[in-house]
Amino acid sequence: MNFKLKVWRQQNENTAGQFRDYEAINIPAEASFLEMLDIVNEGLIARQEEPIAFDSDCREGICGMCSLVVNGIAHGPGKAKTTCQLYMRRFQDGETIWIEPFRAAAFPIVKDLIVDRSAFDRIIQAGGYITARTGSAPDANSIPIGKTVADLAMEAAACIGCGACAAACPNSSAMLFVAAKISHLGLLPQGQPERTSRVRNMVRTMDALGFGSCTNHYECEAVCPAEISATFISRLNRDYAVASIREGLAARG
């Protein structure tokens, strides 16, 4: 198969970028999208042109490193998959394919299609954990957790932290990412002691990092590789409201 690629090239954060045209020639239909880019890159290297920089690691859909917007869709067409799980047989021979990086003020471009998603790490650092000093844990079965609650927590915990939600959101909002972590930990009994401070600190850090707010378009849910439900965002809103009330009452003494 052959394709015409329009690829965003940008030397670094401080220089302007632009689309460049490339031909992807003789691509096997069985190749993955990233393998198609590998082939293009090998061709570029042979012609002494700098290869296209893009992130990927596990290439099996779980590490969350790959991050392309293909034909205007974060992780490309198809439901519940990362870019690395996108295969060329999905495209038409001769098709023009647009490849852009994840775009958000909070995800500055590092080079070409690579963005800096450390903002997500900072949100987790602000409270996305349960403090449990190593060695101090009680027996694992001393805290029974109903299967329904445990399963729902697992659904939220499945987030791979890829950032597609913020990339797809017209407001570059990170709400689905934050909601997933808040719900995962907030549903579990172990997560209750820090529930108020966790949601407060994570949301305010999210705001400070320059992500937008949620206006309920649900673009995030549509592109999420882990199929995190946007209803978790509602839970986040509620938790934040309750935390704010608690905080207000505490301040009044």
């Binding site: 954990y129 349960i130 449990a132 190593t134 060695g135 101090s136 844990a137 009680p138 027996d139 694992a140 079965n141 805290i143 029974p144 957790i145 109903g146 299967k147 445990a150 927590a153 697992m154 915990a157 995962h184 930990l185 579990l188 172990q190 997560g191």
Partner: peptide, 22 residues
């Protein structure tokens, strides 16, 4: 055995039986 205790305390959502145990 300590690993499982530690992970559960951190909120790792291991699979559970209907009674709530692991």
């Amino acid at each position: 055995a300590n690993i499982i205790d530690q992970c559960v305390a951190q909120g790792v959502p291991f699979a559970r039986e209907y009674g709530g145990l692991l």
